[in-house]
Amino acid sequence: MSIFVDRNTRLLVQGITGREGAFHARQMIEYGTAVVAGVTPGKGGQKFEGRVPVFNTVADAVRHTGANCAVIYVPPMAAAGAIFEAVDAGIPLVVCITEGIPVMHMSRVMPFVRSHGARLIGPNCPGLITPGESKVGIIPGNICTPGRVGLVSRSGTLTYEVVNQLTRNGIGQSTCVGIGGDPIIGTDFIDCLRAFQEDPGTEAIVMIGEIGGTDEQRAAAFVKERVTKPVVGFIAGQTAPKGRRMGHAGAIISGSSGTAEEKLGAFETAGVDIMRRPVDVVALLEKRLGALSKR
């Protein structure tokens, strides 16, 4: 079992003929994801890699292929438009990998996504993967292995680091979700925690946060009230100076709010086991799950 994506996911790639889009579409196909369509305006009628049909619009692609998930690799200037288009075409799950979308654009996108009942993951995220079933985005498939630990993270490569630790120690994952490092994102920690809590295939949850904002604090409160499964957490940026944007547009400590201490404190109060180092994830999960996780 898993959350958000599985072997029934029929994926459409927006920007499939671009450099990034083509590279990652190939990787996803290789992994076994059902990539059923691509969209690049003006290139409708072509075939990607000789077999995936390319359409001019998302609506066309949905009509002809029954795609139920879209992943976006278009440049920042067109990315908000691509999200609007996918949602307008009735796609229920839209994953936006693109980094560099103005926050103002996202503030206009989100009410539209909500009013259409769609889910957006990202932007500025690595996407998600249900190991062995479906990879949507850019998380390297080879470092993941199927299992029963759910992982949610604001980061990309830090996620890989932690997933790699899990896999090397025989701890498989139900689904790994990168929710993105931007100030305005479509799916937050709480959305993922709720889904993992409800997913019978997930036995424990790893939550990787970072400085900036209050998403982790609210997530901790949610854990305390609603999550019965063990949760292990990490916060990146304990050494970050105040008022500076640490790479991710959202990773900034404003005033005294958004610090690592504040977030770790919230974790502690909520009974989340705190990883001091990425490598600690293994010992903490083993302690909470025993041999259960090793399958």
Partner: peptide, 29 residues
């Protein structure tokens, strides 16, 4: 480091082992 999250985690780990990071640097994807 490549990636902002890993870059922050690396700085934190430097500190954890008793050192002091001289910078944050993400070379990107």
């Amino acid at each position: 480091v490549n990636g902002a999250g890993l870059a922050m985690a690396t700085m934190d780990l430097v500190k954890y082992y008793g050192g002091e990071p001289a910078n944050f640097l993400d070379i990107g994807g």
